[in-house]
Design a protein around this nucleic acid. Structure first.
Lengths: 169, 169
DNA sequence: ACCTGAACACCGTTCAAGT
DNA sequence: ACCTGAACACCGTTCAAGT
């Protein structure tokens, strides 16, 4: 046995974190494993499937035990921001199978379907925008804009607004 | 004078609507204009810039006169869904310059910054997910899932939740 | 089962040169 | 000012063939 499917996913996540989604090509993932590009297709149907598996891995670390929706959202955000372009990867993959995720199911139990959906879309959107801004800042493309602390606070306020709205229903 | 910058943007929007974002390449936009790919770089710095101009065009049709935030959101959604992959194009482009858009400024006047931001991220996320689902349905990849009417309703409920939350603040 | 090697049909972008 | 032609360094994916 040489490489397994999870070796491929792990290598892809390493490439993602090191180079970003733009450069996370099948060819670079193959190179990370010292293997020809075509070898990947023995483990994975296509790139889209690989991205979905990566998304599962990223979201899999979220703690669903809590009764506190704001806590779950914060933990999801932590997971998304924990790897380069994580929000993009998960948002794109989830768009294809919203309702399939354990996080949405758990939030649905706590808040109802509409609340869960509203909250999730907000968390993805905010995390995506945060990650894009922080990267632009690193590249020196963007000088101004909110600091990380301000972004944390703005995230929390948005979650608060939505939770207030769910309760007001 | 042969082609202008707006000719390029218009051609790109035609290709986008006909083929989708995945196939909206610089080479295909050039072909749409009966021109070599390299000719586009006389009008536009790179593909990212072209996508930003397309996003401006898409969002430019939104009516900002109304005092009613829900109405503005509905109109923004109409604009995003009015062209294939419009939500994706605008969401990606806006991530780079949130705060720059006229829509966010107008919603900010009506609701405050946090409310405007929360609402906008939700509208983008919902429209993106809607567009992905409808396309998957067309391709026969997805058989079940909410109908267009149900998607409209779920959108309206999400907007309602957020507006209730803003008022409860 | 897992991988190589070679090929196919694409990309975005640059740059000298033409009109 | 606007465009061509040619090139460069990439893509994702397929498929026969090897072990």
């Amino acid at each position: 046995m040489r490489n397994s499917r999870s070796d491929v996913v792990a290598a892809a996540l390493r490439v993602l974190d090191a180079q970003g989604l733009e450069f996370c090509s099948m060819r670079r993932v193959a190179a990370e494993l010292d293997v020809q590009p075509s070898a990947l297709y023995h483990h994975v149907a296509d790139k889209q499937t690989l991205l979905a598996l990566m998304a599962d891995e990223i979201v899999g670390t979220v703690d669903l035990g809590s009764e506190n929706p704001a806590g779950i959202c914060a933990d999801l955000r932590r997971a998304l921001l924990g790897i380069r372009d994580g929000a993009d990867v998960v948002a794109t993959a989830s768009a294809f199978r919203l309702g399939a995720s354990a996080v949405e199911a758990r939030l649905g139990e706590l808040l109802g379907e509409d609340g869960a959906r509203t909250l999730l879309l907000y968390v993805f959107g905010h995390a995506q925008s945060t990650q894009t801004q922080l990267q632009a800042r690193e590249l020196g493309v963007l000088a101004d804009g909110p600091s990380p602390v301000e972004l944390d606070a703005s995230f929390a306020r948005g979650v608060g607004i939505i939770l207030d709205g769910v309760r007001a229903d």
